[in-house]
Design a protein around this nucleic acid. Sequence first.
DNA 1: GACGTGTATGCCTTGACAAGCATATGTCGC
DNA 2: GCGACATATGCTTGTCAAGGCATACACGTC
Lengths: 103, 103
Amino acid sequence: MQDLAWAALSDPTRRALLGVLLTRPHSVSEMVTKLGVSQPTTSKHLRVLRESGLVQVTGDAQRRIYSIDAVPLADLDRWLAPYRKLWNERLDALGRHLDAKEH
Amino acid sequence: MQDLAWAALSDPTRRALLGVLLTRPHSVSEMVTKLGVSQPTTSKHLRVLRESGLVQVTGDAQRRIYSIDAVPLADLDRWLAPYRKLWNERLDALGRHLDAKEH
DNA sequence: GACGTGTATGCCTTGACAAGCATATGTCGC
DNA sequence: GCGACATATGCTTGTCAAGGCATACACGTC
């Protein structure tokens, strides 16, 4: 299931769509104008995002409103968690390095 | 540059390679046996990871040792950051819901 | 210098995916 | 019911990536 989210996010256009949805939910035509992508292409990308669980669609058949579903992103965050300590260690080492230089 | 990282991480085999490298650096043959993937395939995936900056290679030409480079992952984390508040809000809402139920 | 080991690369086939275009579906106002 | 609008889907084409296989390259050993 996370595989679907990774595959969905590997496409820059779909990440841009999520970026647009970050501020507030949008209709399809709003996203079309904001990104300058054709309407069929936008609908196809939204389908992928929908089937991966990254967005939800709500409302009537015309003027469907898409919004972000954070659940798969939280999964992503959990995947990333074990690696997070790696760059924290790097920052710690850098901090110690700078501290040592001060003396 | 982040596009490269996203593309690299979209493949499950490459994510598995990173998972193996999480504990400690490995040589190619170690990863081959741990993942049960053929050696050429492993080398090709490692090349993608290398060119996306996700891993570093160190050591002699034979027995090359691969290790994680956390920098692109930190970029990923920064990309994820604005979305993080979305599921925090969800958790807050859930918390308020449970609180309300207690009374 | 020949050999064995570890790693990388080239070639090939297959499958997936993105975008463009045309078209279908679904819904509203009249 | 019929246009007008918003959204979705089918079809086709080009591109690209993954894996299998054979093979090249680099290094150490004798």
